[in-house]
Amino acid sequence: MGEPRRPLLAAYMGALFAFLYLPIAILVVLSFNDSKLATVWRGFSLRWYEELFRDTEVLLSIRTTLVIAIAATLLSILFGTLLAFGIERHTRSPALENGIYLPLLIPDVVTGIGLLSFFATISLPLGTTTVIIAHSVWGTAFAAAIVRTRLRGFDRSVEEASLDLGVREVPTFLRITLPAISPGIIAAALVVFTLSIDEFIIAYFTAGQTVTFPIQVYSMIRFGVTPEINAVATVMLLFSMALIVGAYLIARPRGPRAARPGEGPA
């Protein structure tokens, strides 16, 4: 059936990707810079990678951040999907509908400060757990908003037809509803995960002695950026690519079972 050919739009995509990737490409190049100063080139070197792989603080902070992001994503998807369904299916309250966007409208610094004083008040020690809680507060809102966008476009008559034909609610949900909204859930998970990995301000207030990766980077920048950070960026990029390719390879065999042809493993 062929897709619309739009050479201008394709050229635009090319330019957009150049905009997105050029700054990162520069960092990759600079990660091989022998100079301590990122703005001066002094020949090819792998010394920053050597330093990076000896830098246990950076490595530990990356691990902490991954643990937080995975836990916060799972929590957010759980709460967020339930919330999206509840709002779309079981309520007509406009206050509640707008209410789920509220956490997105609270700047990080406010959430962070609020939680910090709250955790102090109930004397919950700051650490990985508190950051997970903090991240899933707004993660839930992101997940609910994205899943809901998808859910609203979902044609309920298919679901009703299934129920009318005597299929029970849970199988209907698993076979019909879930596949249809799964792109929304996957998009939500991607957004929450990537935001959590990157989140600095809330973590800064709620991490206590725990050092997340962004906090580590912030600390490094305060004492002057070294190309070790560029090396970190390069490794992160490679890691993300490997992760995505891996996820794609694992997901592919199940692709054809998706609800609509062309829905793909997304």
Partner: peptide
């Protein structure tokens, strides 16, 4: 690109 640190990308 989102999967590299925000501060690093800003620094770029």
């Amino acid at each position: 690109p989102f999967w590299t640190n925000f501060l690093i990308r800003t620094y770029a």
